[in-house]
Design a protein around this nucleic acid. Sequence first.
DNA 1: CTATCTGGTTTCATAATGCAACTACACAGG
DNA 2: CCTGTGTAGTTGCATTATGAAACCAGATAG
Lengths: 161, 161
Amino acid sequence: MVKRTSFENDDCPIARSLDAIGDWWSLLIIREALFGSRRFGEFQKSLGLAKNILTVRLRALVDQGILKLAPASDGSAYQEYLLTPKGRGVFPILVALRQWSEEFDDHPAEIATILVDKEKGRPVRKLELYSQDGRLLTAADTALKPRRDSKSSRKLRSISA
Amino acid sequence: MVKRTSFENDDCPIARSLDAIGDWWSLLIIREALFGSRRFGEFQKSLGLAKNILTVRLRALVDQGILKLAPASDGSAYQEYLLTPKGRGVFPILVALRQWSEEFDDHPAEIATILVDKEKGRPVRKLELYSQDGRLLTAADTALKPRRDSKSSRKLRSISA
DNA sequence: CTATCTGGTTTCATAATGCAACTACACAGG
DNA sequence: CCTGTGTAGTTGCATTATGAAACCAGATAG
């Protein structure tokens, strides 16, 4: 490295997401925030990470517009970290990660929690990907097309799944 | 760190996934594999990462059953890296990361590709999460339940989205 | 039989991460 | 007013991960 490779100028949206939240702690911080953690100390205790790392991560997440700082809601003079819409938009990523573990982990018995639908308390279904006309798609049914495609470049990179 | 924190014994499935594929390169390697890359050199050229790093990552992915080694299909004496079902199961995670960039990235114009349905060539819809009885769910409609829940522990950790 | 390709390994420098100790401010009680 | 506790960090130092570039051995190509 000498300097950790940054993907922020990569034209692949996956690389861009990873550049923003692809480190060891950011997604877990966002997970905790979705569960209601707001204060520095809450994140620190629930995740058990070093405070200096948490400081750096929280600042980065605020800089990226994933969290925002707000005056504390409990009357104290401190402040709290709240999710922005961009931060809440991470939810499907967390669900995808969770479901991958549930399906393929070697020791699923050690998984402690299940994501349920709040109204009925029943487990949710797997994430589904549909075409615009409503067909359920698998990886093999999709392809990548260059944006701003001139009709000429009709080369679709097929996803061989 | 002194020793990078491992999440593999964490009981959170998200942490477990991150422990397996949450580093800087694994997801991009899997992305390339989904597009058809099979050989060491292909990964190295398309991703532009150092060969020593690629060596370590590929070995880890094989150890985890995400890739498997097979004799080269082109007749040469070399071998190639193929995705296992577990590896192909990463697809929804990549889609979720892609869609998050597409929706929230500050410079969406720089995103080069669009995921389309192969049959019609039209962009896919966003990933959807449904309850078992078919209601479309948002983060706010979900909660976490402990696994093997005794009826007593009816405390659902609500997701405050 | 030499040259090149493939798939690495080795060496060295630098960046990221972790733990622990320290600081600064707010508030609560006596 | 003084002390203690909680919050939210910062600083120093040690260890690990990552990267660039050089090196290397076995296949393959000419």
